[in-house]
């Protein structure tokens, strides 16, 4: 039996775990193609026009898998941490896909909810495994395999390698450059090279080392985010805020690039918090890049070049004082 995993949303975060888990249960795992023009076009046609591009792409990737697999794995991710939620669209996406008249193989949509349980993912995966085998021991073994895969994947990421190097065979971020930029954005925006316009590649070419959330210890990020008087209740919001604060406070980067999908709900507020709390008060260089299905690579290059030029000048001639003073 073949199970398809669309290359969307949390793919670049959990794929190694899902793959190891399903393979240990004796399934063949098929990821969908890397996002291409065709997938984007069909996604835009089939989805709700107001949704953000990452959600739209789910439609295209699912259709890409349609004839290749027997099942499609599209979890309903409710929350990944105590008292936090994912964006409502993450919670509703299996329902949206199922009701979209797409003519696709059955969707497997276990609810992944880590909000109140000490057992973490285990409960969800136990239920998930039950669909394929009655043998609980086998499921537990598969789950352990999955956790092991996730752990080694995360360890590799912490060494400064991007998910694209590991999963898509690219070679980014290995070298050490003079200018360092922290990208603050969701994994499904940065690592989907079609929608991010190959941002990491462009920055590498400009002589910039890219740091991202995946390279920092998760708990350290959350600790940073907990300074907020009212804690953010989106898992991703916390991570973005924490990452930005970590980068700035530890002096790891020369500037920050915020990547925001057009129409992203949580980010519209989180971005505001980062700007008002962290970057503006100390004049820290920051640029926000909004992406959608109409973004062009040329526009992106121009903006990134200008930003990097500014950082270089700042570093060479102005020390830590901006020209405002």
């Amino acid at each position: 039996m073949r199970i398809g995993i669309p290359r969307v949303l949390l793919f670049y975060r959990y794929y190694p775990m899902w793959k190891a888990f399903f393979e240990a249960l004796g399934l063949e795992v098929v990821p969908s193609s890397i996002t291409n023009k065709e997938i984007v076009d069909i996604s835009v046609e089939k989805s709700v026009s107001e949704a953000c591009i990452p959600i739209k792409l789910v439609y295209g990737h699912i259709l890409d898998l349609k004839d290749k697999v027997d099942f499609i794995f599209l979890p309903r991710i409710v929350g990944l941490e105590y008292r936090t939620y994912m964006c409502p669209k993450f919670i509703g996406i299996p329902d949206m896909i199922r009701n979209a008249s797409l003519d696709i193989p059955p969707i497997i949509d276990p609810t992944i909810d880590k909000r109140n349980s000490l057992t973490g993912f285990f409960k969800s995966f136990l239920e998930l495994g039950r669909l394929f085998t009655k043998n609980s021991l086998k499921i537990i073994q598969a789950y352990t395999e999955g956790l092991k895969a996730l752990k080694s994947y995360n360890e590799e990421l912490r060494r400064g390698i991007t998910p694209l190097d590991i999963l898509d065979g690219k070679n980014y971020g290995g070298e050490d450059f003079n200018i360092k930029i922290g990208i603050v954005g969701h994994c499904y925006e940065i690592y989907d090279e079609f929608i991010s316009g190959g941002m990491i590649k462009i920055l590498n070419r400009l002589g910039v080392k890219v740091l991202s959330m995946e390279m920092i210890d998760w708990r350290a990020i959350l600790r940073e985010a907990n300074v907020l008087p009212k804690k953010l209740f989106w898992t991703f919001g916390r991570e973005l805020y924490g990452t930005a604060r970590y980068f700035i406070r530890k002096g790891l980067v020369d500037g920050i690039i915020m990547v925001v999908a057009f129409g992203c709900g949580p980010d519209s507020l989180v971005r505001e918090l980062i700007e008002r709390d962290l970057t503006k008060p100390i004049n820290f260089p920051e640029i926000t890049i909004t992406i959608d299905e109409h973004s062009s690579e040329l526009g992106l290059i121009t903006r990134l070049e200008a930003f990097v030029d500014m950082l270089i000048r700042r570093k060479q001639y102005e020390d830590n004082l901006s020209s405002v003073w």
């Binding site: 989805s47 709700v48 107001e50 949704a51 959600i55 964006c87 409502p88 669209k89 919670i91 509703g92 996406i93 329902d95 949206m96 009701n99 979209a100 129409g263 992203c264 709900g265 949580p266 519209s268």
Partner: peptide, 11 residues
């Protein structure tokens, strides 16, 4: 851009 209503619209 209301997130819950986008989900509803899709359905």
């Amino acid at each position: 851009t209301c997130m819950p209503e986008i989900v509803a619209e899709g359905i």
